Computed example of a mutant assay.
Amino acid sequence: CRYSHISYNILCLIFFYDYSCAEVDSMTEAVAGEGFLLNCISCKKREEVSARATLDWHFKRPDDHEFTQIFHYKHPKAEVLHEDFSDRLQWQGTLNDDIQIGAVFIQNVTFNDSGTYRCTFSRTLLLPLQLENVVVEKEVELTVVAAANRELTAVISEIVMYVLIVVLQLWLILVMVYCYKKIWNEHEAREAKKALEAEGSLLESKDHCDGMQAE
């Protein structure tokens, strides 16, 4: 993962370990001149249900009265719809029709990027009997500052995130060891059973031969 942003690291955790979808809130403070990950996640309540979705981002500055659409994603095409964000928005969300992560990366953030961002998931659940349409909206209040202000909560969150990564890795190793031992024990049990069956067959054959000789 190339960005050091906390929420992007969490997204990387979701992408690469693929444990489950987690609705992580976006950070709300960006630094002028740097990049910023605008995060928006909407998890399906039932992962086993197939779905397809589109994602729209709208933006409203503090002095504006209405939102303006700035971005649209329908796999595999991403469209930047406002000239103020031309060549500055990159899709960093789900790379298939079943969109659950609708993140976009803003390059070269300016003070004019401060305001309210609204993401809208337009999702169609492909249920066996019928299709069901679901719309989910979330908002992010973004403030652009001249220099980063790392709050204590942000530092704690980052520490917890790395601890979580280590714990999940250890858990995965333990699961692999447990599964390996279980498979090995089952293999040993099967081999022992085969050996007993073979020994029983030999004894039965020997008894049969001894009986024939006695006659």
Rank of each mutant, 00 (worst) to 15 (best):
C12M: 09
C209E: 15
K206S: 10
H65T: 13
V144Q: 04
D18K: 15
K60L: 08
V177A: 08
S122N: 15
R46Q: 13
V175A: 10
R52G: 04
F71T: 01
K77R: 09
E151D: 13
E48Q: 10
G33T: 10
E83N: 08
V24E: 08
A148Q: 13
N39C: 08
L55Y: 07
Y180T: 12
L142N: 02
Q213W: 12
C21A: 07
I70Y: 01
I6W: 05
T54H: 01
Y117G: 02
I156P: 00
C43L: 09
H5M: 12
T28K: 13
I99F: 01
W57A: 01
E197D: 13
Q69R: 15
V134C: 03
G115H: 06
L126Y: 07
F111Y: 11
D113M: 11
I70A: 01
V166F: 13
D113L: 04
Y19H: 11
D207S: 12
I101V: 15
S26I: 09
I70G: 00
V104D: 01
V175G: 01
F85A: 06
V80R: 01
I106F: 04
G211F: 09
E199M: 10
L127W: 11
L81S: 05
D56S: 14
N112T: 14
E141Q: 14
E66G: 00
S114H: 02
T68V: 12
I6L: 15
V177G: 01
C179K: 12
V145I: 12
I165W: 08
V160D: 13
Y17E: 14
F15W: 14
T120C: 04
V134T: 12
I101D: 07
L202M: 13
H65G: 12
Q90S: 07
L37S: 05
H82L: 04
L127H: 06
L81Q: 03
N185C: 04
F16Y: 11
H82D: 15
L81F: 05
I183W: 14
F59D: 03
A30Q: 05
V31M: 04
S42E: 08
S157C: 08
S4W: 06
F121G: 01
W171I: 07
H75M: 03
E66W: 03
L142V: 14
S4M: 06
L168N: 11
A189T: 10
F67T: 05
S50V: 02
S20H: 07
S50T: 07
L125V: 08
E132I: 06
G33P: 03
F16H: 10
V24I: 15
A192N: 10
A189E: 15
T110Y: 08
M161H: 14
V80A: 03
F85C: 04
D98F: 01
T94D: 05
T28E: 15
A195P: 00
C40W: 02
N96F: 03
E132P: 01
L81I: 06
E197T: 10
M27Q: 15
I99W: 00
C209L: 10
D63L: 12
V144E: 06
N133I: 11
E83A: 13
C12V: 06
Q130W: 14
Y180E: 07
I14P: 00
S42I: 03
Q107L: 12
T54S: 15
C209R: 10
L142A: 04
V136D: 13
